[in-house]
């Protein structure tokens, strides 16, 4: 009887171990963020230093709620089917910091994000420098293509008194990227009409 009981105990111990291992693995798979998801909150000091802050977090669960067909009007009056654009998205994250004076943030504040953008799969797509009267903006657009398709986009927009970081996770048509400006808290960065200004918008050499 004792031998039989011991066997049952061993079997149950094995079952416990298997179930626990499978549950842990399942939870790990539920972690939604792939390599295209950037950690944008490494520089907590930016939020404290800035006089203005915009922080938007739309994860996959929220994006799924948006109907497949939903027409919205952009600030320029253009009607777009935003549902089609967001169909392949798994996350939209925006951090925009406004400062009272110039020089309140520095390149070193971007070290954390830039380090992530140097990891395999990320490549700089375009560099836009806008220097019109009253405007001095440097926009860098990166894309993640680790799986052979676009898995994510990162946008760094640097202005003297504003720093904006945008991370779009998921499949997106690059031609429609500009249509997301003004939606989901993404500011108007002028990516679509970047060609009107001084620019260096040739694709940068691919980094791996």
């Amino acid at each position: 009887m004792r031998t039989k009981l011991n066997s049952w105990t061993k079997l149950l111990c094995l079952a416990v171990a298997l179930v626990a291992a499978s549950a842990t693995a399942g939870r790990a798979q539920q972690q939604p963020q792939g390599a295209a998801r950037l950690q944008l909150d490494n520089e907590a000091s930016l939020a404290q230093k800035s006089s203005e802050l915009i922080d938007v977090n739309l994860d996959e669960n929220l994006l799924r709620i948006i109907p497949k067909k939903i027409i919205t009007t952009t600030d320029t009056g253009e009607k777009i089917d935003i549902g089609k654009i967001v169909g392949g998205l798994r996350g939209v994250y925006v951090r925009s910091y406004g400062f009272t004076n110039e020089g309140e943030y520095s390149e070193s504040n971007l070290n954390g994000v830039r380090a992530q953008l140097r990891s395999p799969g990320w490549a700089r797509l375009v560099n836009i420098i806008k220097k019109k009267a009253g405007e001095n903006m440097h926009v860098e657009v990166y894309m993640m293509t680790a799986t052979g398709r676009i898995d994510g986009i990162a946008i760094l927009a640097l202005e003297p008194k504003r720093l904006t970081l945008v991370n779009i996770v998921g499949t997106i048509d690059l031609e429609k990227l500009s249509q997301l400006e003004g939606q989901f808290g993404i500011p108007e960065l002028g990516i679509g009409n970047g060609g009107d200004d001084d620019k260096d918008n040739k694709p940068a050499p691919r980094k791996q």
Partner: peptide
Amino acid sequence: RRTHIPLLLLLVALIIASPAP
């Protein structure tokens, strides 16, 4: 009691396996 051990283990397994949501 020794006979309670399998039940206890089963309970632990169920708690661990329960999805977080």
